[in-house]
Structure formats: structure tokens, C-alpha cells
Design a protein around this nucleic acid. Structure first.
Lengths: 346, 346
DNA sequence: TCAATTTACGCAAACGTTTGCGGTGACGGT
DNA sequence: ACCGTCACCGCAAACGTTTGCGTAAATTGA
């Protein structure tokens, strides 16, 4: 009952012709008579012939498969990216095999190895938080494996990347808070070593500068606020109880923004009248809170699409043409919601 | 620069021995002298030899890959399931190829075809909402392709399935509302044709019956509430404005529960004092709303694990042993939160 | 009618790996 | 001097597909 896949050989034997002819007939090669073609296609249809793409892969040394390594699947942003990747890959005839590193460096190393000997045609990567050594990527990159980084990119490897304009996003959201009339805008920062953290901070500062606001170090909350809602809440509570508290806050991500909102609510502040809040990433839940949280949309789907396009372009490049790596920066969108919208007008 | 994968043949030529010996040396076969083994493994290490698993797959006619077909990736529950699948698959040496049907029947058919000719060793499926014809599944099932359904299962195919105890979950949540003292508990129903919808309704009814509450048809809201927050909100608002409104509501899913909550808030009702709300699925956002929403946790990760285990068991079954299909029903957990918790005690 | 061309097909090699089987040389026992 | 045993290794086939090349038959041209 098992393993009864019908192959080209079966068709050939059945029809009393050679496998070569069957193969050619199936792909409408000119050197095969119309009658033979019909006989072949009819039988193939009847027996439900499915080409064995493994054999094809071996023959062509191309698997038509791309690998994706991400920190975690259960994450609104990353799953959106995967969706975008899948969209492009599917339409270009590639399958997508996903591996999650679970933010573990070791697991990431094993994943890259596994994908490499699975002979994927290329790899899309968003690095784990732990990763500081890039040898596992470099070694396969040296061998000519096409690869594209997205979101959490690796600077030391010369390949295409897709990132989001964190600077501009932070600038926009900060400007929005200023324009809404808030005077003391705090920044709930992320880990200092992450590039995105620095970029967002820079955007925040730039907006302040452009609108002639003084930079106040006491409004910058440094710490592990990005990691959990709870710490974000604690840090915010502390800040709100300081002598000269802020009347608005821009948080490094939506989770932190939610923590901040809870802290403000517990203190009895009205949002957005007494205290405005904005986050970053436009995670799903931000539209569901009360009030809904103003945030910056990171185009995850588009990021997946762009990354997949860049990768496939590289995979399908002719032998002689050299692809020059390209870094694509995606624009963000400010999404204004109740947590920062005073007077109900935009 | 490209395509310079080092193969067993390269190692063999380099060392002046045959590929067979290299192959055996690499897997520590007894019929190879220690010196040869060392020479081979050293060279393999030096040249960074990676076995070509495509060739292996062809040889063994086994790809060590499993396919997953889901309605959508960007969905808290499904991405959690994938995570569980990945967990088990990875540890058993399988890669996971994901294909999303986007709730489209046609796409689902194409996905199954694609996975089949990709020669995956088995398929995990959660059907699209559109699917009512199962021929695409049956045809590959007849050929002996191992397959396991999860969550959105197909009744007409005789294979293993993993589902959640919707009946019991609904029973628990309804009982909880009763025990909290609510008198008129409404049910915001889902589409009638979905099995889960019926099961949850049955659980609701059973709880009412067991606690001697009369079943009141006017408390059952039928419609497309499951599909969008907006329609759930509208339907709830209408019900709340009826002559004899409910003081609690159990919604078919969390999204609907959120819509209901917004409707209640707009009407000025206090939650949970005036109106209690409970949902189903424990989506991520339910803990983030204000108040947090009582719900029923569906063990997505575990579901993925169980489904993967069942599938791999079937894949790795010996030729002669016959696997009898098994339907595994996973227990749900009631998660009590602020939206239904009166007096602050449990 | 004969050579030249076209048409339609088969042979065999190749992709990289595994594995049953056969073969070689060394060695010890008689 | 012969045989059996053993350790070690190579040959070749197989997995399913594609494709360059060869070749027979059919067709064309004069």
C-alpha cells in the first residue's frame, strides 16, 4: 500500500517507450510526436503521476526551497514577515522551510547547518538576540549560499538586508506627540546594544531638536523595559512618581507601551488627557486596548516580501552576473490612536 | 565561487579511495580501518563536508520533512501550533515546510499537491474554512501518505486527529459565570456549520442544565459574530438594548468577546459588575485589555506537539505494523480574569 | 534512385549517497 | 603447501529525473 509513487519509469514501461521520451513528452518537447505526447499525458493523468522533486533537485542541484531562520514564530511581527515571505516564495515556485532559533545562539547555529545540508537555495535570517559571533553565517556565505538578513541584521556580512526606518518612525511619533501639545515627552528605551534601539532614540532626539525642545536626560528611562510588560510598568511608575513627571511617553515597543499605560492607569492618570502614550511596531493588540495605543506600523508583510524578492533574485542570477548587495529601508507608518489623540481631532 | 559543495566523491578522490569506503568511514562502519577513518573524518572536517540530504532522500525515498497546511500563519493560535510542531519535528530530525491556505480552498488543493510532489514524509493539516470537498486529501491518503488533522479536522478521512475539548471548555466557562452569580448568561454563537461552534454551544447548554437554569433562546445570538469584532459589537449592542438584557456573555471566541466588551462599555456598563464577559482561545491580547478577558486556553503548543508525534509515529512505523488512527482530545484550561471576576475572590 | 535532411526516439551518463556482494591480501593452522 | 578466516576495501546498482548525442526510419529534394 505504501510507497507506490508512480514514476516516469512506470509510465515508460507501461507504454513500451523510454523514460527519456516520457520526460520530453511531459514537458512538451518538440522532438516527440503528438500521438506519443497524448498517450503519455493521458496515462500520467490517469495514474496521477507527480514528478519527484527530490530527484529533480538532485539532478539540477537546486532544491527550490528557501530557509527562514527567525527568533520565534509566535510573534505578531515575525509571523507577518513569514507570511510575506511565503507569498513571494509560493508564487515563484519555492517552498519555505522555517526554523526558529528561540533566541538561542546555539540553536541558530544548528539551524543554519541543518538548512545548509538540506541544500536550500538560499536563507533568510533574522538573528537571535544572543548572537554576537557570525562565523556560522560567514562560513556558508563564503561558499556562495545566497542570504538576506531582515530586521535583525548582521553588519559584518556583505549581503542584502531589509530593515525598517526606525529613525524616521521614532521621529514621526515624537513629532506627533509634540504637535499634540505635550511638553515633557519621556522615552522608554531598549537595550543599548541593539541597533534599532539606538536608531529610535536618535529619531526621538531629532524631533525634539527640530522643535526646539530641550533634551532632558531625566526623561530617558534606560533599562530592560523592552523585555517585559512588567518591568516597563515598574520603570514608568517610578518615573511618574518623580518630582517633575512627564506628560507623554514614547516606548521602544508596544509591549513596553502597554506596561506604561497600566502604570499610568494605576496612578489614576487619564489617557491621553493627563498622559499620552505611544509604542512601536503596531502589534495586533494595540488596537484592542482601551484606549487603543498610538504606534508605528512596521510593514512586516512587505519586509518579508522584499527580503524574499532580494533572495530569489540572487538565487536566480546567472552564473556570470554579480549581484551587488543592497540594503532596503522600509518606510514606517504612524498610526494615531486614542492613547495620544487629544480633542478628538487629527 | 558557487556550487562548490564538497561531496563524498571529492573526499574519495583526494584520499585515493572509493566513495563506498568514505561513506562507511563517515558513519563509523566496522569494516573500515581506524587509520582510514581518521583520514576521512579529518579531511571531511577540513573541507567542511556536509552530507547532501537531497541525495540521501532520493536514496532512501524519505525526505525527513513534514508539511504543514494551515489557514493562516499570522494568527496567535496557529503560530503557537506551528511552534509545537517545530519543537517535536526538530528533535526527531525533521524539517518543517509550512504552507498557508489563506482560508482558500483552491490554495489548499495546490498546497497539498505541492507538498506531495515535494515528497514530504507526512502532512499536518488544519483545514480552510471554505473546504467542503476532501478529494485532494483523500487521493494522497489513499496512496499511503501519513497525515494528521488538527483543530479543523476532516471527519470523512480515517486518520489521526488532534482536537480540543470544546464542549468541556464551554462547560467550564459557563459554569464559572453561573458560580459567579450571573443570572442571565448570553451566548454569542459562531457559524452553525462549524463543529467547534456546535460543541461550545452544547457545553454552554449542559452547564445551564446542570445548574437548573432555563435555556432562553432570546439569549442566543446567532450570526457572523465570530468573524469580526465589529459585528460582534453590533450584535451585542442590540442584545443589550433589548427589554430583558443579559448580565453576562460567553462569546464563541476572544475577538467576539472584545467586540462585546466594547459594546458594553459604550453603553456605560461596568465590567464585570454590570456585565461579565468571557471568550474562548486565550489569544494573546486577552490579558492586555482593560479589564483582562476571562477565556479558555486552548493548548496550541501542545496540540502541535501531539499532532507531530502522531504523525512521526506513523511515518516511522514498520512496514508490517498497521497504525490505528487515534483521535486525541486535549483538555482546555479556564483562565479567569477581570472581565468576569466579582468581589476579587476566586 | 540516391543522398540529404528531418522526425522521433533510445542510450547512457550524471546528480550524491548507500549497500550487498565480491575480491584481495595477510595471517595462522595443519 | 594448502585452506579457512578475517579485515579491509572497491564495484556497481539503485533512487527518479534530465539531456547531449547517436541512430533508425521517414521524408524531402534533385
Amino acid at each position: 500500500m505504501k510507497n507506490n509513487h508512480v514514476t516516469i519509469k512506470h509510465l515508460a514501461r507501461e507504454l513500451g517507450i523510454s523514460s527519456s521520451t516520457v520526460s520530453r513528452a511531459l514537458k512538451d518537447h518538440p522532438n516527440v510526436s503528438p500521438e506519443t505526447k497524448k498517450a503519455v499525458t493521458d496515462l500520467a493523468e490517469k495514474l496521477n503521476y507527480l514528478p519527484n522533486s527530490i530527484a529533480l533537485s538532485l539532478r539540477r542541484s537546486k532544491s527550490n526551497t528557501i530557509g527562514v531562520i527567525i527568533p520565534e514564530i509566535v510573534h505578531f511581527f515575525f509571523s507577518t514577515v513569514i507570511s510575506g515571505i511565503e507569498d513571494i516564495a509560493y508564487n515563484a515556485g519555492y517552498s519555505v522551510i522555517v526554523a526558529q532559533s528561540n533566541e538561542s545562539y546555539e540553536r541558530e547555529v544548528m539551524d543554519t547547518r541543518a538548512l545548509a545540508n538540506h541544500r536550500v537555495d538560499g536563507i533568510l535570517i533574522s538573528m537571535s538576540r544572543e548572537t554576537t559571533d557570525y562565523e556560522h553565517f560567514e562560513s556558508i556565505h563564503r561558499r556562495g549560499m545566497p542570504m538576506v538578513f531582515f530586521d535583525r541584521v548582521c553588519d559584518t556580512i556583505n549581503c542584502s538586508k531589509v530593515i525598517v526606518d526606525d529613525f524616521d518612525g521614532a521621529f514621526q511619533v515624537t513629532r506627533h506627540l509634540i504637535q499634540q501639545g505635550y511638553k515633557r515627552i519621556a522615552y522608554l528605551a531598549g537595550p543599548e546594544n541593539l541597533i534599532i534601539s539606538k536608531q529610535r532614540m536618535d529619531g526621538y532626539c531629532m524631533a525634539l531638536e527640530q522643535y526646539n525642545r530641550a533634551f532632558d536626560e531625566s526623561l530617558i528611562v534606560r533599562g530592560r523595559a523592552a523585555d517585559s510588560e512588567e518591568t516597563a510598568k515598574e520603570l514608568t511608575a517610578k518615573l511618574l512618581n518623580s518630582p517633575n513627571p512627564p506628560d507623554a511617553m514614547f516606548a521602544i515597543n508596544d509591549r513596553a507601551a502597554l506596561g506604561a499605560m497600566k502604570a499610568a492607569k494605576e496612578k489614576g492618570l487619564k489617557i491621553p488627557q493627563d498622559f499620552a502614550i505611544a509604542g512601536f511596531s503596531n502589534w495586533e493588540f494595540t488596537s484592542m486596548t482601551d484606549p487603543a495605543i498610538t504606534t508605528v506600523d512596521q510593514p512586516g508583510f512587505k519586509m518579508g516580501q522584499e527580503a524574499a524578492k532580494l533572495l530569489i533574485r540572487e538565487i536566480e542570477a546567472e552564473e556570470d552576473e554579480t549581484i551587488i548587495p543592497e540594503t532596503r529601508i522600509l518606510k514606517t507608518d504612524l498610526i494615531v490612536r486614542g492613547s495620544s489623540l487629544v480633542n478628538g481631532h487629527l
